[in-house]
Design a protein around this nucleic acid. Structure first.
Lengths: 105, 105
DNA sequence: GTTTTACGTTAGCATATCCTTACGTTAGAG
DNA sequence: CTCTAACGTAAGGATATGCTAACGTAAAAC
């Protein structure tokens, strides 16, 4: 989970995700959106996203099309939601204990 | 935002957040929950969280009590929510364009 | 078969991260 | 004032990250 969160804790990688959210794109076209770095850098970012299951690769001839793996995004959202809500739940439990203590005093 | 996301992309730091979500705790007590690392390491994790506004420090004598800064967590959640929903919205927009194209053909 | 095209991969460098050990620092105890 | 408690901070090492430049590779074009 740490590596998955780290994968999206990078502006370029989040931009890549946004870019291919609605439609798949070949690597070269993705790289065009980042003129400040080389194609190699983008290829490595794509590798990080792929290894964490965030994106999917489809080969066609010499080109590789990338698209977002929505399932993994859903899993990430679920993890974060449970992270927040677990914490909130613990807070609620504590509030209940506090109420019981107030009732008992 | 990258550094804020990186701050929570670490199991120990997320555990610290959970630990002090409902109640503030002094640094020593937080460190007790992590017997595998030194107090210094925890102090540095606390520093990372504080610099990103995730936690709040209250000094009392020689002790420092830490608690979660809920406002920052809310901001983080809002950022992520808009990240997902912006992407979904773009997907919806594309679907509409697709429908129009289908209608026009 | 040779050459392009569209990629990934490797080597190597600068910087960042996470840790431990050692050294401040501040508030209170004696 | 001296000592201790509860901390942070600095130094330094191992490993990870992000990048560029150079190299490797498979598919298609010629």
């Amino acid at each position: 989970m740490d590596t998955l969160l780290k994968a999206i804790a990078d502006t370029k990688r989040r931009d890549i995700i946004r870019l291919i959210w609605a439609r798949e794109l070949p690597a070269a076209e993705i790289a065009e959106y980042f003129p400040d770095v080389t194609r190699s850098a983008i290829s490595q970012h794509l590798s990080v996203l792929r290894k964490n299951g965030v994106i999917h690769e489809r080969r066609e001839g010499t080109r590789r099309f990338y698209s977002v793996n929505r399932g993994e995004i859903v899993k990430l959202r679920a993890f974060l939601d449970s992270f927040w809500s677990d914490s909130l739940e613990r807070l609620r439990d504590l509030a209940e204990v506090s109420e019981q203590q107030q009732g008992a005093s």
